[in-house]
Amino acid sequence: MTPNSSTPLLQISDLHVRYGPVHAVRGISLDVYQGEIVTVIGANGAGKSSTLLSIAGAEKLSSGSITFQGIEVGGKKSPFMVSRGVNLVPEGRHIFSRLTVEENLEMGAFSLKDPSPIPARKEHVFATFPVLGERKDQLGGTLSGGEQQMLAMGRALMVAPKLLLLDEPSLGLAPLIVKTVFETIIAFRKAGTTILLVEQNANMALRHADRGYLLENGMIVGEGTGKELLVDPAVREAYLGA
């Protein structure tokens, strides 16, 4: 996939994240261009979530720079990032379990100053995930894991983000649901959303991604197109169990 603009939508250089003595992210640099699906794969504790959280403004970065649409946004808080069009669907989904499905979606649209597009977007989410429409008055906490994942993604779509950060959306889901999740990701991209996807399910992720990065111990140890990485022997051994 050829990048359709010379400056990346998201550019990260030499990002470091520390939690007290734990140095979780040690100088990551990566680019995401408009319209791409980029995936970051790595083992448990590699620093994937930390990277996404610091992009989304939910975790402090210790040093380094993050630019979004050419503007430095490193260290900005999440409400600012959301207003700029960067949304994170965090690991573990984090549905508001004591709010109804519909209220969860409304919370997704919290940052919109103008509420007029909300009903249409709700309908759009319900069209994408019909099961959510059926359960719109049910409490979020009563949904199944797969439904919660859909709700989490739907919630992020309420603001029509420019960049969607997805942290292990397939975690703990049955293969059939995982397939739906990836189909939805493709659909989002078609609708104009750029996607940065973190996954442990390297096989699925690399098959759907344009490009991928390999993260190990907080550092990038490899990158390439999805197809290249899929056939790379080292990757196959480390991440694909082959």
Binding site: G57, S78, P79, V82, S83, P90, E106, M107, V159
Partner: peptide, 23 residues
């Protein structure tokens, strides 16, 4: 109200509330 829902959301999961853009 919008603020009321935001209060409930924040009470339940502060970080996630921030992630959807709640101040």
């Amino acid at each position: 109200s919008k603020m009321g829902k935001a209060m409930r959301a924040t009470a339940e999961d502060r970080r996630m509330a921030g992630l959807v853009g709640i101040d």
